[in-house]
Amino acid sequence: MKKIVIIDYGLGNLRSVRKGLEHAGADVIISSDPAAILDADGVILPGVGAFRDAMRNIQALLDTISSYVSSGKPMLGICLGQQILMSESEEGGHTQGLDLIKGSVLRFPHTELKVPHMGWNSIGISRKHPFFEGIPDNTYVYFVHSYYVDTAAGNTLASSEYGTKFAASVINDAGNVIGTQFHPEKSGDMGLRMLRNFVNMC
């Protein structure tokens, strides 16, 4: 059984992510212990809240996360967890991210559309990857967010549109760090399939 660690840094919907991973057949631990993170087969970086708060809370784990990613093992960032994988965000002023994936996090433009973007929306899968194995193009998934990852950096794995085109999923150059702006754990059977795919990647 694959051991998956959900990183607890004080901002995250931990229980629903845990239930989704357990449904996928993983042995799931919620922890901020560096030894547990480095020993994991896979790591989840969840997140609900503000980018600046997330970066402040996760400071003590920066070296651990860097070492884990360098090992080549898979990491999945969900929602705010995807955003902090990026280089920077304009939320709360200019804030540096983990810079594991090149790109910027931007505020949705002022339009007639309500912000936050909340609810089901389809995603267009840009390239093949094991995370999306068995997931049809234009699958609907569940979003809750006011900021989005710009697609300009070229690390988009899947995209969506809400007033503007944005990265619904991103990937690093090595292919082991993935982000989803949407919540797989709240996206029905297809979301659970993605979590199962992640466990299989580990």
Rank of each mutant, 00 (worst) to 15 (best):
T64R: 01
F182I: 09
N176D: 11
D53T: 11
D27C: 13
T164C: 13
S122R: 14
L14V: 13
S31Q: 03
E88L: 00
D137A: 10
I30D: 02
V69K: 11
L11I: 08
V115D: 12
D33C: 07
I135Q: 09
P116S: 12
S32I: 00
V43T: 02
A54F: 04
A168Y: 07
H110Y: 14
A167T: 15
G179V: 12
S104T: 06
N197Y: 03
K3I: 10
G103F: 03
S66K: 15
P130L: 05
C79R: 08
P184E: 06
A153Q: 04
H183I: 06
M75Q: 13
F166L: 11
L113W: 15
I4A: 10
I135F: 08
S70P: 03
L11T: 12
C79D: 10
G49K: 07
S32Y: 01
D33G: 02
I101N: 06
I84T: 02
A60I: 07
M194T: 06
V149I: 03
S70W: 01
K165C: 05
S169R: 05
N176W: 04
H94E: 12
V43M: 02
D173M: 08
R18N: 14
R56I: 02
N176Y: 03
V105T: 06
M201Y: 10
L100E: 00
E112N: 11
V17Y: 12
T164I: 12
P184H: 10
K114G: 14
A174K: 14
R15L: 15
D150C: 12
Q83K: 07
A24G: 06
S104I: 04
K186R: 06
Y147T: 04
Q181D: 09
G163M: 10
E88A: 10
S159N: 14
N121G: 09
I37C: 04
G119I: 15
Q59N: 15
W120R: 13
A152I: 11
G188Q: 13
S67P: 01
T151V: 07
G12K: 07
L38N: 08
I58Y: 00
R127A: 06
N138M: 12
M86T: 13
T151G: 11
G42C: 02
G93P: 10
G20T: 10
H117D: 05
A50N: 13
K102W: 01
T64E: 00
I135Y: 04
L38C: 11
G47N: 12
E161T: 14
G134D: 05
N121D: 02
T64H: 00
L61H: 00
I78E: 04
L11A: 15
G72A: 07
D150R: 14
I84G: 01
K114I: 11
S187I: 03
S16Y: 05
A35N: 15
L192A: 08
V141R: 03
G188K: 04
M75C: 11
S67F: 00
L21M: 09
H23I: 12
V43C: 01
V69H: 01
R18A: 14
E133W: 13
I58W: 00
T111E: 15
N13E: 14
S187V: 05
